[in-house]
Write a protein that binds this DNA or RNA. Structure first.
Lengths: 186, 186
DNA sequence: AAGAACGTACAGAAAAAACTGTACAAAGTT
DNA sequence: AACTTTGTACAGTTTTTTCTGTACGTTCTT
């Protein structure tokens, strides 16, 4: 028996209206995490859910197919915004929203931004090496070297930024960010 | 006369290949900034351009319509990833890539994340007020209050997070982040 | 003032993505 | 071992987004 269903219709509606506003807002802004409006909505629904939900329950509530719930939940799992919950003797998989949004934020950066850093740094280093090699092999060709130097300078600038971003992500991943910017207001 | 065009075909190709790898990588990861692959590619192209470019030049280089360049550049301008350049007596608008990626990163957060914070905090506060009002008007209804308290607690948790995020964005906006996580490696 | 060049609004076409229903493998129940 | 139940892969459909070509207002040139 769920506490929520026992309430009067009037009170239920009032609560649902309040929740809906928040869910809508969350869903709308979750594109910053690279997910669809509907996946964002799914997260918001899980956030207010009294208890962990099954795919079927989500589908019923969102009026969407189970397939969509499956893929949506998987995205949220990848982003660590949702946790799989174990319950004794439960046939179906259960999921609940991760409610520590600091952690969610930090994980997102650790996962997505680090991925981007690595890919870009890889490309930058490889290209820089090529350009440096070309420079060595063409001693004295002034106008070529002018172009090469400018490109190499740009690449070095980008690499410097990524070194910083990497260290910034470290602070998120390690939680050191909360020493630098404390959770409790000053 | 541009220095680049004066080079031998072999050298040009080598440089273009090196640039292309980086442009491709940048473009691919710019979805973190909420832009398309092609807009990301456009940024990468501008990043390596010897000089500011016109819409027509971009269209020629990207083999895309001028309309697309116009909308693409506007997006990049909104994200402050591209600057409009003034040149004496130039008919056409000229654009160049913002090469300070620290600034780009900070601006993105200031613009997009702050927008999300405000929208969500607004919704959370409004809903919290509604729920608190309902609570006051229903003194003694225990099971209702149990639900309300849980929702209010969740909302308060979210608000606490947004207060932190807001202060974090402040550090980006003010540049104080570079005191906390220095640009020069330790 | 007329003409040319530029950037963008807008509608339609093309491409990409989100979503669904069916089918099926894996795991659980009887 | 036969029968359910559950989650997901996959193909096809719908919806959304991206991209293009034309049209037009604005600005600059003459």
């Amino acid at each position: 028996m769920q506490p929520f269903d026992a309430l009067s219709e009037q009170h239920r509606d009032a609560i649902l209206k309040a929740r809906k506003r928040v869910i809508e807002a969350i869903g709308k802004n979750m594109d910053l995490y690279g997910v669809t409006l509907s996946v964002g909505h799914l997260y918001g629904m899980l956030f207010f859910s009294e208890k962990p939900m099954t795919l079927d329950e989500m589908g019923r509530e969102m009026e969407m197919s189970k397939t969509s719930m499956s893929t949506g939940v998987r995205m949220l799992l990848d982003l660590k915004m949702v946790n799989k919950v174990w319950e004794k003797g439960a046939r179906k998989d259960l999921y609940e929203a991760e409610s520590d949004w600091h952690q969610t934020f930090a994980d997102y950066f650790a996962i997505e931004w680090r991925k981007a850093v690595e890919a870009n740094v890889g490309a930058l280093n490889k290209s820089a090496a090529e350009l440096r090699r070309l420079k060595e092999q063409t001693d004295g060709e002034e106008s070529l070297h002018a172009v090469l130097d400018r490109d190499l300078e740009k690449i070095e600038g980008a690499l410097a930024y990524y070194r910083w971003l990497d260290r910034f992500i470290d602070t998120l991943e390690s939680g050191r960010i909360y020493e630098l910017v404390p959770k409790d207001e000053p």
